[in-house]
Design a protein around this nucleic acid. Structure first.
Length: 271
DNA sequence: CGCGCTAGCCATCACCGTTC
DNA sequence: GAACGGTGATGGCTAGCGCG
């Protein structure tokens, strides 16, 4: 195969098929017809070609190299196209979508899925990596005169966790309206909706109750497990925890309390 | 450290199908 | 049939690696 064309600099060059018995012309397409066809062929595959000894051998080696290169490039294209075909199968419709449009479509869909996942996970009770204890008042208009709290606790699982929680909640003399538990690996997150059975004024009483809940649940959170393997994990998780009481009342300034608790050693010695 | 080899990326070209 | 866009093939280049 031999073709004639004009390159970018309007210099007449030849294109040739390297696999033909009689190759000819420049390989890089940027210079005029080479003086020696064999020499140029070898240069194409061997770079500078300074150490050419036997032109015939080099010619053969160059041909083999070119073949290998062509095969490798073909395999590369097949890999790329294979993955693109897989992507095409994941994108609804559009069989005739070109590569660029396909990639753009995939990007859009991945973004949509990420946003969707974010929205969905927002409403779920999913344990996080950090120990967390939150108490916040709920303002239910249908239950006037009753103070309601939402308390959530996130920590490592341990065998006596739920009995401790039951005991702690029970000690508060509050009514449990709802409770949810979710686990993820060895992490546990619990959610309690608690209400005070007695009719008290909001304000100071509300803060006192919230503090009582916070204290009760934190005693559960920082209680060391009698089992060594769970105790070790509890010790490690001490490094990352967050406790807070949040008052979302529109009437009051946000009261956000976040404090560190005594070390495990201190709490162990006190119990 | 220089050299040779290999794999992979990239630019360019040719070919093919579609559109007007 | 010319223009255009998409795609495969090809050659150049280079980073990385092993070897003497």
């Amino acid at each position: 195969m031999e073709q004639q064309l004009w390159d970018a600099d309007s210099v007449y060059v030849k294109m040739f098929d390297p696999f033909e018995v009689e190759p000819g012309g420049a390989g890089d397409g940027k210079e005029e017809v080479a003086d020696s066809e064999d020499e140029d062929m070898a240069k194409m595959a061997e770079g500078s070609g300074k150490k050419m000894k036997k032109k015939g051998v080099m010619n053969e080696k160059a041909t083999v190299a070119l073949k290998n290169h062509s095969l490798a490039e073909r395999r590369r294209r097949e890999r790329i196209n294979g993955h693109l075909a897989t992507l095409r199968g994941l994108v609804p419709a559009h069989e005739k979508m070109d590569k660029a449009t396909l990639l753009a479509e995939v990007i859009n869909q991945v973004k949509d899925l990420q946003e969707h996942a974010r929205r969905v996970s927002k409403g779920l009770l999913i344990p996080t990596d950090a120990d967390e204890l939150t108490v916040e008042p709920l303002h239910d208009e249908s239950q006037s005169g009753v103070i309601t709290f939402k308390a959530s606790l996130c920590c490592d699982f341990r065998p006596d966790l739920f009995s401790d929680l039951k005991q702690a909640i029970g000690s508060l003399k509050l009514k449990t309206l709802r409770s949810e538990i979710s686990t993820l690996g060895e992490r546990v997150k619990t959610l309690f909706i608690l209400s005070s059975p007695i009719n008290v004024n909001e304000g100071e009483a509300q803060k006192n109750l919230a503090n009582a809940i916070l204290q009760a649940l934190s005693s559960v959170l920082y209680k060391p497990s009698p089992l060594p393997e769970y105790s070790l994990r509890t010790t490690l998780s001490q490094k990352r925890f967050k406790t807070s009481f949040e008052d979302y009342s529109p009437r009051s300034v946000l009261s956000h309390k976040r404090f560190r608790y005594p070390s495990l050693e201190a709490s162990s010695s006190s119990t």
